[in-house]
């Protein structure tokens, strides 16, 4: 079996975002780029599954739609342990465009399990995984917090309100994964970093497809009104404020 993890290249989550070009474009000066946190957890789980020979995973690959500037992030995924990488050489216009490009990669390089993080920390769209499955005409499971393989079958936990469902679904499928899928992201060891240098990144050109959406304007959140402080010896005052001023309890 082969697993593909789709990865997004995003600003480090502690970045103080700023915009340029009339608030239409992210100011990338000084931005640290990282693997989207959910994708990193997905990759970690894929590698954990490969570690156990009983699961019969021969290969873990990653795929990314982006320009050559994203290669350090792709190399990081290879250093963590992915065997090879695919990069579609294009600016990521929108989720629909990205999913369409990824589906082209998968049509020529089939995988049994495709993992996508539930959202990217930049556009928070929760879109690419579901779109990709529809482009491929295969099934998908979202809100996945655990994947195990038993006798070649996938056992999947899907989070629902107040609990979870334990499901199975035939391959190939797309799993859209979230918290719980892996405990901590795997960190690249020196050996992995050395080996990543020689692992292949297969670059392809994008197919011609229009995006369906575009960001026309960014804005920063309005600052909250200054915090009103209450005497720690008299929390009753807080309750009165919540009741009479905020009118919320």
């Amino acid at each position: 079996m082969k697993i593909l993890v789709c990865i997004s290249n995003v600003p480090d989550t502690t970045t103080k975002v700023k915009f340029i070009d009339n608030s239409r474009t992210l100011d990338t000066v000084g931005v640290q780029w990282v693997i989207n946190p959910w994708d990193e957890l997905a990759l970690t789980r894929a590698l954990e599954l490969k570690d156990d020979p009983a699961n019969g995973i021969q290969q873990v690959a990653v795929a990314h739609v982006g320009l050559v500037s994203a290669e350090p992030t792709i190399r990081k995924a290879l250093a963590i342990g992915a065997d090879e990488a695919f990069r579609v050489n294009s600016y990521a216009k929108d989720a629909f465009f990205v999913a369409a490009q990824l589906s082209e990669v998968i049509k020529t390089n089939p995988f049994d399990i495709i993992l996508c993080g539930i959202e990217s920390s930049d556009y928070n769209g929760s879109s690419v995984g579901g779109m990709l499955s529809e482009f491929l005409g295969i099934n998908s499971v979202s809100a996945v917090s655990s994947i195990k393989i038993e006798n070649g079958k996938s056992l999947i936990h899907r989070e629902i309100d107040g609990g979870k469902e334990i499901l199975t679904i035939p391959s190939p499928y797309v799993a859209i994964v979230q918290k719980g899928i892996a405990k901590e992201p795997r960190i690249a060891a020196m050996r992995g970093i050395m080996m990543a240098r020689t692992k292949p990144i297969k670059v392809s050109e994008p197919v011609d497809i229009d995006s369906l959406t575009e960001v026309i304007h960014f804005e920063l959140p309005k600052p909250r009104t200054a915090c009103k402080f209450v005497d720690p010896e008299n929390p009753k005052q807080l309750i009165e404020l919540l009741q009479n001023e905020a009118k919320i309890i």
Partner: peptide, 16 residues
């Protein structure tokens, strides 16, 4: 909509 996990907002045009 909210973007950058709440650190910004965006106006997004849907063309379809």
């Amino acid at each position: 909509k909210k973007v950058y996990s709440g650190n910004a907002f965006a106006e997004v045009r849907i063309k379809s």
